[in-house]
Design a protein around this nucleic acid. Structure first.
Lengths: 127, 127
DNA sequence: CTGGATCCGTTCCGATACTG
DNA sequence: CAGTATCGGAACGGATCCAG
């Protein structure tokens, strides 16, 4: 019977490892303080310019925003569009189709976040 | 017509802000390199002891695991159970009901991670 | 306006050693 | 077994100045 438990746990370790690896892959791309936020704003606003983006994401500095945008562009979540015909040059950022595959992730996080906030307010913590 | 766009965007900013805040609340609690992984393993294994946990999460050090567990316990995701009647003392960690509310989050992340990995392998990147 | 460059403090985190 | 202590490097991120 002790053995059964061990066998069960050994089985768990396999599926568990799969899930773990998949979540790890996801986190590798979208974790960090800003990435998901930028993606969300980009998706909701359609096209958007650098400064407006910065204004919509409270607390982010130009340096960090710039770095994050490069990273997101490399990973195919954002497209950078330069309107060279205008003066001064206008640069717009738009979200890609691929970034839209994160819909479920964003929604589940958003839902959970709302509940969590509610719970924290009500509980007053019975630790 | 230019005006319509601005009105639309102004509306977006409101709902956008809500989503942003909710996702931010969620990320505040579960972001970081290890938190979700620990929660996943804990959920799949039921009860588990410190060293086994460390073995199941490749790369984590004892110091970091210890810190993360304390943090997770404070936030109600993990329960620490001490069996003082045994010698040597056995300490077990178990996941809480509250940690199970993350089910959707974990599943959507896992699904997306699997797809993402597949895409990366196939694309060979047509940037 | 759209960032790049630099400086610098903080925080994270990995390695190792150690304790009861 | 279940952690703690200490160290040091790396990464993150804010502030400021600068350029096209």
């Amino acid at each position: 019977m002790e053995n059964e438990v061990e066998v069960y746990k050994a089985g768990c370790k396999i599926t568990c490892g799969e899930n773990l690896a998949a979540v790890e892959d996801a986190l590798y791309v979208i974790s960090g303080k800003w990435k998901l936020k930028i993606i969300i704003v980009l998706q909701e606003m359609g096209n958007i310019r650098f400064n407006e983006l910065q204004r919509l994401i409270p607390g982010i500095s130009a340096r960090v925003l710039s770095n994050e945008l490069k990273d997101l562009e490399l990973n195919g979540f954002v497209k950078r569009v330069v309107h060279a015909e205008m003066t001064p040059v206008v640069v717009e950022y738009i979200s890609t189709d691929y970034s839209r595959t994160l819909k479920n992730v964003i929604m589940s996080l958003s839902d959970w976040g709302k509940n969590h906030k509610k719970n924290i307010r009500e509980d007053v913590f019975e630790k």
